[in-house]
Computed example of a mutant assay.
Amino acid sequence: MHVIYPTVAGEARHQIPPNQQIVRIINHYKRLSLEQLQQRAAKRKHDSQVKDYSFIVKLKVRNSVRCSGALLAPRLVISSSSCLSGVPSSQVHILTRGGSTLPVAKLEWFRSSPEVILITLVTAAPGQPIGLCSTTLKMGDNASMLMASNDLSFFGRRHSQVVSNQACKMTFLQEESVYITPNMLCLQNSQSPEKCVTQQGDALLVDRQLCGLNVYGSRCRARSLNADLYIDLEKLRTLISHFIQKLLG
C-alpha cells in the first residue's frame, strides 16, 4: 500500500513503483510547531486524567467547597468524617466533574471506625466508582497522594510512602484535636509548604485502587519531615463492602 503525501516546494516528487496501485492520496495536512504539539500532548494527558479520576467528588457545605470524597458506588460517596463534623445532611451537596451538584439523602458513620463518613446520594452520580484497596500497606510501601482543584478541573498526584506515626505526631504536635488511631496510616508529604495542598478526603491510591482518605489535610513546615494522616481503607474493606451491597439491594 502506498500513501502519497503532498510535497513542499523544492522537494522531489514521489516516485510510484510500476504496477503499484495508489490507495490513498493526502492532499492537505497542517504543520504544527513544537509548542502546539506540547499543548496537544498536555490536553490529551489532562483528558485522560479527567476520565481516570472521575470517581473524585467535592463536598459542598452551603455554598462553600469544604473537602474531597470518592465515589464507591453510583449513589455512595466516602470521605473523612472530620470534614462534616456537626453538619446536617440537608446542608451538604456533592459536586461532580462537569459542575453537577447532587443532593444528599443520608450521612452515616461506622461505630468501629468514626474516622470515615458514608454519604448516600438521592440520585446516581456521573463518573466511574473506584474499587477499594486489596493491599495491606506497611512501613516503606509506596502510594500516590491524589489532589484536585475545588472545581475538579485540575488534578495532582504525588508519589509518597508510608512512614512512622512519629512523623505525623511531629507534624500535628500543636493540635490537640488531632488523634491517631489504629485505622490510620502516616504518609510522607512535601518538605515545601507551598507544595502541601492535600485536603481532607483526598484519595490515596495504589494500583488504581482506593487505599486511603486524608483525615485532616496538610500541616507543612519548611525543611521538615511533613506527613499526612490517612484512613486505612483496606482495614474497613469488609464493612464498606457490606454497606454497598445493602445499598444496592
Rank of each mutant, 00 (worst) to 15 (best):
L239D: 02
K60P: 03
R237M: 06
F172R: 00
V104L: 13
H28E: 15
S144I: 10
D52I: 04
T101D: 12
Q166S: 10
I231D: 02
S90H: 13
L248V: 10
L32C: 01
Q200A: 01
N226P: 00
S48A: 11
V162Q: 01
S48M: 08
S218H: 12
K43C: 08
G156L: 03
N165M: 08
K30C: 00
R111M: 12
G201D: 06
G127D: 01
V65P: 01
M1T: 14
R75E: 10
N189W: 09
E176Y: 13
L204T: 04
S100Q: 13
C186N: 00
R237G: 01
L229D: 01
L229G: 06
N165E: 00
V215A: 07
S164F: 01
A42T: 13
R208T: 09
P114D: 04
T198A: 14
S85Y: 09
P6C: 09
D207H: 05
V116N: 03
G212Q: 02
G201L: 07
R24S: 12
V163M: 00
A222D: 10
P17Q: 03
T101R: 11
L76E: 05
L118F: 11
G217V: 06
L32H: 04
P74T: 11
I56M: 05
T198M: 12
V57K: 01
F110K: 10
L225E: 07
V122A: 11
A125Q: 01
I94M: 07
N63G: 11
